[in-house]
Structure formats: structure tokens, C-alpha cells
Amino acid sequence: MDKQELALFQLCDSNFPTGAFSHSFGLETYIQEDKITNKETFAKWLKVYLSEQLLYTDGLACRLAYEALEKKDIDTVWELDRKLIVQILPRETREGTYRMGECMVDMVKSLYDAPLLSTYQQEIDKKNAFGHSAIVFAIIAHYLAVSKSTMILYYLYSSISSLVQNVVRGIPLGQTAGQQILRDFQPLLYDVVRGIENLSEDDFGAVAPGLEMAQMNHERLHIRIFMS
């Protein structure tokens, strides 16, 4: 791992202050319905979330945004920002996503003097963009000259790492079990990266209906510890 990759990996820390610890993205619904009760049932859910929702939305958007930046096609980056948000049907998930995105823009902008991040912040302030972590990741990876495949891998790892930490609190699950899941998912992460590299732009937005329904139902839960 070189210095640029290490700099990007800092953003993958589950303690990086984006607000991800407040969001379960429908996971809490499955926990309250007793569909996720242990390490095995969570791993089954996480596999679907990674290989369905993340692959066709955030992961593919990371790749497309990075490719647009290579072509200096900034308008496509802003269009991807809009598509990422408007294709999220569940209200809580949609609002939580762009809150995390705004927070990440602000935090990363304080760490790196990447001009496009400042432009992104201005577009958000003017309501011309929403703010999404996948777009921030692509911008800073391109700025640091980290390879596209490494960027996608790190983003996916960051996403599932946050969910593992949340399920440790939500079930609850032991920290050891959480780390075992992250270890076991390493081969799948590489498979999903390869899948993303072979997708077309037309594949963007395909999601699992069950995940969306759980995200919609979350706002009607009587007791919850997560915002989405």
C-alpha cells in the first residue's frame, strides 16, 4: 500500500465521522422481525446488500464518476450525484444518504486541498447537488491518483465495515464475530469489484425489492436505535 492508497484508506475507518453509525439502511427492520439474529443470518443479509444494492448503485457510481473525472466530464459527475439520490425510494435512507454525503464532503475538504471538493460543496450549497459518499470517494481517489479498482474496493469495504459495527450494537453481536465476517467477506469484495468493472451504465439502479421494503418499513418501527 503506497502513501496515496493509505490516505484514501483513512476514509474507510468505521470511526471516520460521516454519521454512518446512525444508519442501518433497513438492517434494523430485519433485526426487529427476527430475520437477523446471529452472525450467520447477518452474513446472509450482508451478502445480498453488497452483491445487489451496493454493486448496482454506489459501487457502479464510484466507477462511472472516476471515469468521468478522467475525461474531465464534470457534468456527468453532478448527474451521477443526482441519480444516486433520486433513485432511493425510502425517505429515511434517501435523507440519511445525503446527510452522510454532506458530512463527508466537509470532512474530506478539511483534510485535502482538492479543488473539485470545494466546487462540490458549492454545488450542494446552491442546491444543484445533494452530496453522496460515492462521489466524494471518486473525487478524492482521482485527486490522490489511486487506481479505480482500489478505490471501488475501499469504498465497498468502508460500506460493509460500518454495517458490521452497527450490527454489533443492533443484535447485539460480539466484536470477534464482526471481525470474522469482515475477514470472510474479503473474497466476495474482490468478486464484486470485478463485477462492477464489467457493468454498463444501463445497469445502474438495479436493487433488491426486499431491501427497499425493509428500508421503507423502518420509519414505522416503534423502537429503534438507528435513524434509517
Score class of each variant (00 low, 15 high):
Ala145Trp: 11
Asn198Trp: 02
Val108Gln: 01
Gln4Cys: 08
Val136Tyr: 09
Asp113Val: 08
Ser51Tyr: 02
Thr57Cys: 02
Ala43Pro: 00
Phe42Asn: 09
Ile223Lys: 13
Tyr157Leu: 15
Val164Ser: 06
Glu219Gln: 14
His142Phe: 15
Arg220Ser: 14
Ala114Trp: 05
Arg94Cys: 10
Met107Tyr: 13
Asp2Ser: 02
Ser159Cys: 13
Leu163Thr: 11
Ala114Val: 11
Trp45Ile: 07
Gly96Asp: 08
Leu84Trp: 00
Tyr154Thr: 12
Ile196Glu: 05
Pro90Thr: 05
Leu11Thr: 01
Phe25Ile: 06
Gln10Asp: 11
Asp13Arg: 08
Leu211Ala: 12
Val105Trp: 03
Leu111His: 11
Ser161Leu: 12
Ala141Leu: 11
Ser147Trp: 10
Met213Asp: 14
Ile36Lys: 00
Thr150Trp: 10
Tyr190Asn: 00
Asp106Asn: 08
Ser147Asn: 11
Ser159Ala: 15
Lys109Ser: 15
Trp45Glu: 04
Thr37Ile: 15
Ser24Gly: 09
Asp58Tyr: 03
Leu64Arg: 00
Val48Pro: 02
His23Trp: 07
Asp202Gly: 08
Thr93Val: 09
His132Arg: 10
Tyr143Thr: 15
Ser149Asp: 15
Arg82Phe: 10
Tyr120Asp: 03
Asn38Lys: 06
Ile196Phe: 07
Gln165Cys: 14
Ile223Met: 11
Phe185Trp: 01
Val136Lys: 09
Tyr190Leu: 00
Lys148Ile: 06
